[in-house]
Design a binder for these strands. Structure first.
Lengths: 225, 225
DNA sequence: GTCTATACAATGATAGAC
DNA sequence: GTCTATCATTGTATAGAC
């Protein structure tokens, strides 16, 4: 597959040029405002080429997304492995670092491209498009399982007596972290991304450690809806 | 102001009918997919009525938003006052409850309208539209200040000796909470909203309490970007 | 002041020639 | 694989009726 590169064609293929242009424009302006004509003009290709290569604008969005998300999550897994190599079971903060830091690394030092990608990610979460949702979930499913397992190991090892950490609770707390990370990093006015990421790791670690020890229970009237 | 109700007109005014229809359709489908023709058809008004009453589709989005957000934040302030009435300085969990619970209350028991409003809120955060951003910030600014102050009071009172809680840190942690709340509640597959909200309050309380005591410091290479 | 009918430029998408 | 031509639909603007 993917042999659609002709010998007499341009330096880079049409498909890749579309992806690059779309990524930049989506980041700058958002999905809907950006028109296919803008993209194809910036990529110096014909308007119909988008529909030929990707099928629709929606599919192009997903393709752009998948590429970056792959990169982000690969980096996360690498760092997770390093955390385990350093110590097994790993330190809780190291696991959280492995999840948070790569998102930060996308913030290309002053280029401010990172904020925009986080905004894109947030847009994808909030988007009513189910196909886009599905693609994200698919891309994230494995990562979330790996990190949830790692967090359970790390947290459980701190409590000598306790047999195991409630898995559902950890998964829920990982969701809290994803929300906090995405929301905070998407903020265009964020001043010190590194300090913020560091604070988030400490906050999440304290939250995970503290919940099991908390005596105070905030019970809403009914527990199940 | 707002006396645009004629005696021979329909039961409800044109303006309100547009708002109601737009709110429902935006929630179901999102901002961009929903057309003005859909809205005006559902509201049984003329297409041009939208531009007459609101000026643009963008302005309509903001108007729909402001109405619900007002309601949400008023309820939050009421509960915050109750927390202070019960005990001053208030209990940390009570303050967090006052912020989290009203978002939950929007989830009209089975009607599932709450998830959708939270999705709408997330969409608004992620939207590249600066006018919408500005309207949200304006609506939220006062609330965030009030809750940040309350959290500082609550947290500081727990540490007898320590003079005051770092204000910037609390504000940052409040942002973490907003992100986690919005992301989690927007999830369409959320099973037990009440239990989740309760867990979030405990998580955030532990996070806030724990950070100051944490010895482990996750320092990224450089602290300032 | 409110509302309606209508027109307009720009959009995503598609068919068919090359 | 690529391009030109064309389509229905979109948000918006305007002129004029009540």
């Amino acid at each position: 597959m993917r042999l659609n590169q002709t010998f007499v064609s341009d330096a880079t293929g049409t498909r890749d040029r579309i992806l690059d242009a779309a990524e930049r424009l989506f980041a700058e302006q958002g999905f809907y405002i950006t028109t296919l004509r803008e993209i194809t003009h910036a990529a110096s290709v014909n308007l119909a080429a988008v529909n030929y290569h990707f099928g629709s604008k929606q599919a192009l969005v997903i393709a752009v997304f998948r590429r970056r998300l792959d990169e982000l999550n690969t980096e996360r897994l690498t760092r997770l492995d390093q955390a385990f190599a350093k110590q097994t079971p790993p330190v809780l903060e190291d696991v959280l670092d492995a999840f948070v830091y790569p998102a930060l690394a996308l913030m290309g030092d002053g280029h401010a491209g990172g904020h925009r990608f986080m905004q894109l990610l947030m847009r994808a979460y909030a988007d009513p498009d189910e196909a886009l949702h599905g693609a994200i979930r698919e891309e994230y499913g494995y990562i979330m399982r790996r990190f949830a397992d790692a967090l359970i190991e790390a947290a459980s090892s701190e409590h000598d007596a306790k047999p195991s950490w409630p898995a559902d609770q950890i998964r829920q707390q990982l969701d809290f972290l994803v929300g906090a990370l995405t929301y905070t990093m998407a903020d265009a006015k964020l001043k010190h991304p590194r300090a913020t990421a560091s604070a988030l790791v400490r906050f999440a670690a304290a939250g995970i450690r503290g919940v099991s020890q908390t005596k105070y229970a905030t019970d809403f009237k009914e527990e199940l809806s």
